[in-house]
């Protein structure tokens, strides 16, 4: 799978928009030190995936200005992993799926939650 640098993400996504690719989803993987964001698009029935590394403590770029449909999954990632997206429209501020009194960032990995040595990463 190709890796795209954060500063080239919008250009890459704009190219996909220009060649009429369909947005499929974004998958966030917690690598403990950082996040892996895997962007998936469909171009003529072929799945196009690429990954972008995201710092945990810095807001990331939203692609909702190009693919409006991405707002839902970006809000979901914001809820579940606590990764903020800049220029996200509409922005549910971490409360798309979670309620005000619910747990925060439930998808973040916690060392030891899977028992034994499994999560000592």
């Amino acid at each position: 799978m190709n890796e795209v640098q954060k500063d080239q993400l919008l250009d890459e996504v704009q190219n996909l928009w220009d060649n009429r690719s369909r947005f499929v989803t974004i998958t966030c993987v917690d690598l403990v030190d950082e996040f892996d964001l895997i962007y998936s698009f469909d171009h003529n029935m072929e799945l196009v995936n690429f990954r972008v590394k995201a710092d945990k403590d810095r807001p990331f770029i939203s692609i909702s200005g190009i693919y409006a449909a991405s707002f839902l999954v970006e809000n979901e990632i914001q809820d579940q992993f606590g990764l903020k997206f800049e220029n996200l429209e509409p922005d549910f501020k971490g409360f798309l799926l979670l309620s005000q009194d619910g747990p925060r960032t439930p998808m973040l990995r916690k060392v030891g939650e899977r028992g034994k040595q499994e999560d000592v990463v």
């Binding site: 499929v24 989803t25 998958t27 993987v29 917690d30 998936s40 449909a69 839902l72 999954v73 899977r114 040595q117 499994e118 990463v121």
Partner: peptide, 17 residues
Amino acid sequence: GSNRSLDRFRIRTPTFA
């Protein structure tokens, strides 16, 4: 994952899309 578990399991369902 490193043992018999998964590092990540993600589902994008059709209604979400």
